[in-house]
C-alpha cells in the first residue's frame, strides 16, 4: 500500500491543515510511504489464532456510576475561547 500526492493533499484537507505543495508535499508522500512500508513488514508475521491485543496489561474497561459529579463552571469552560459572550462560545457563523 502506498499514497500518492493527491491522497496526501486529501488527507491534509480532512485534517483541516494547510494544503501541502511542492517539496513539502513530496517529502510528506515519501515519509508516509516509508511508514506504510514498515507497517507492511509487520504483516509478514502470521497472526492467525492470535487475539487482537487491546491493552498491554490485563485490564477491562473502567466504568462509572450514573451520578452527576461534574459541571457547573461555565466561566472556566469558555475562559480560553477566542471569543465568548454570556458563557457561549462565539464562532464565525456556520450553517451547513
Amino acid at each position: 500500500m502506498s499514497v500518492d500526492e493527491h491522497t496526501v493533499q486529501y488527507i491534509a484537507k480532512l485534517a483541516r491543515i494547510e494544503k501541502p505543495v511542492g517539496d513539502e508535499l513530496k517529502g510528506l508522500v515519501d515519509d508516509l510511504n516509508n511508514i506504510l512500508a514498515w507497517v507492511e513488514q509487520l504483516e509478514e508475521l502470521s497472526t492467525e489464532n492470535v487475539e487482537p491485543m487491546t491493552s498491554v496489561v490485563d485490564a477491562s474497561l473502567r466504568v462509572r456510576a450514573d451520578i452527576v459529579t461534574d459541571g457547573g463552571y461555565p466561566e472556566d469552560i469558555v475562559e480560553n475561547a477566542r471569543d465568548a459572550r454570556d458563557n457561549f462560545f462565539v464562532v464565525p457563523q456556520v450553517v451547513e
Binding site: I67, V68, G71, P74, I77, D86, N87, F88
Partner: peptide
Amino acid sequence: SGASTAYGGDPNAHVSLV
C-alpha cells in the same frame, strides 16, 4: 463524563472538561 444531562440549563453549565 459526570456532567448533568438535564435539558436546557444556562449555557455551558452542564459541561465538564471532558
